[in-house]
Simulated assay, not measured.
Amino acid sequence: MSADGAGDGATDGFGLDHLPYGVFSRDGGPRRVGARLGDRVVDLAEATGRPELATASLHALMALGPAVWAETREQVRDLAATGVAPSHDLADVVLHLPFEVADLVDFYASEHHATRVAEILRPGQDPLPPQWRHLPVGYHGRAGTVVVSGTPVVRPRGQGRPSREEPDRPAFGPTRRLDLEAELGFVVGVPSALGSTVGVDALVDHVFGVVGVNDWSARDLQAWEYVPLGPMLGKSFATSVSAWVTPLAALDAAWCDLPGQEPAPLPHLRHADGSTPQGLDVRVEVEVAGTVVSRPSYATTYWAPAQMLAHLTSNGAALRTGDLLASGTISGPGDDERGCLLELTRGGQVEVAGRGFLEDGDEVVLRYSAPSTSGGRITLGEVRGTVAPAAG
């Protein structure tokens, strides 16, 4: 590989079978769209001359739809395969938030996570509400606090349960139960019209790709505020996403059957033949302060991404380019498959990596991988974030 070229990147999960998209800048210059190949970033604007790739966001490319996505992917693969496409060393560029987040919807799609959280927060009650097996539960988050991997996360302040010393007065201050949530995010490219619906068969017509997601959570704030309308300040202070967006086409080999849904979902959440949509075999590694604490798999999730999309639009809500649909915490059945510290520590009763919840200075790293069309595994973009002390 020449100094300005790009190799095949086949050994690190960022080869020609992957080629995720991101937005980068160099030496303080303008932001532009690139594709990662190994430890190089291919400058797609310079390589192609296409105006939608000479922008500070993937927004323009994402809005063009599946036919253009496929053409672009083939063009990028051809350019990268030559080994002479204009590129930069990954260490020499700055990576930015890759798309303009329009709306953020965070789902609660893992049965294992939902059950364990209920057992911790509502002991003695039914772990799942009656509607949980009939629809993908979710809440609307704040798009403006979505940040790119590597951005420090300031410990939030907020209101929590009254203390023993002042049982009639809620406490206010920095969260003492800061948590991570390992999730997978789906990025919408093609919008839909207000009043229309998007069926489960139309996922590939609207979703451009996937990103890793850490939906940081202040558990003490969340526990005090979430009844009756759900999370607000306990979730809204920061959501980190990977700098690289993996095209949905790069995950063709990762589709897998769901563990099973009982009772059968309503018709709008099934294919016309009555079958349920598939999930994705995406594995996650969760590292806290240098220690790997969990390895959950998205393949164990109860609700499929196509069902989340279909339910979100079933009332006629419109999709917008840049919408981010997050899966909710990814957790499996095993003790080593829990995707947040709330589960891993059993609500703070035991320590993991020497702590109950996150401490100032802790770095959290989420790593993702999936089966590749070439027979190996691709490495999705990681999500990093370091906890900074509360402001003020």
Rank of each mutant, 00 (worst) to 15 (best):
D252M: 06
H271S: 07
L44T: 06
A289P: 07
V93K: 11
K235N: 07
R122M: 12
L79A: 13
P130Q: 05
H140K: 11
G7S: 14
A70E: 14
A67T: 15
A306L: 07
G158F: 00
P51G: 05
W303P: 10
L58R: 15
D281S: 15
D43N: 10
R26G: 01
V241G: 00
P167A: 12
V210D: 00
G375D: 04
P228D: 10
L19K: 04
L324I: 12
Q131N: 11
L37H: 03
L184D: 01
H113N: 13
R346N: 13
G339N: 10
A10N: 00
R270A: 12
D336W: 08
L266W: 03
G381I: 05
D17M: 01
D220Q: 10
T386K: 11
A114F: 13
G189N: 09
V105N: 06
A60Y: 05
A202V: 02
A171W: 14
M1D: 07
R270Q: 15
G234N: 05
A45T: 03
G15D: 04
V146F: 04
G9W: 06
R355H: 04
A63C: 01
A250V: 12
L44K: 02
H96E: 02
P127V: 07
D360S: 04
S87R: 06
T239H: 04
G332F: 01
G348I: 06
T386H: 04
D17V: 02
D360T: 12
V137N: 07
V245H: 10
L358N: 02
D335V: 12
L16G: 02
A60I: 01
W132H: 08
G7A: 14
E165L: 08
L229C: 02
G348H: 05
H113F: 15
V227A: 12
G29P: 11
A35V: 12
Q261F: 04
P371S: 04
A253R: 09
P86M: 05
M308E: 13
A60R: 14
R177L: 09
D106L: 09
G173T: 10
L229E: 05
L128V: 10
S242W: 00
L221F: 15
E71G: 08
A114H: 13
A317F: 03
H96K: 02
L184N: 00
L135S: 13
Y226S: 11
L309Q: 07
H18Q: 09
A317H: 11
G328A: 11
A243H: 15
I120C: 07
A102L: 06
G348Q: 04
W303E: 09
L95K: 10
L312D: 06
Q131T: 14
L104N: 03
T246A: 12
V93L: 06
G392V: 08
L248Q: 07
G28C: 09
V84N: 11
G13H: 01
A10G: 02
S110A: 14
V153C: 08
A326V: 15
V153S: 09
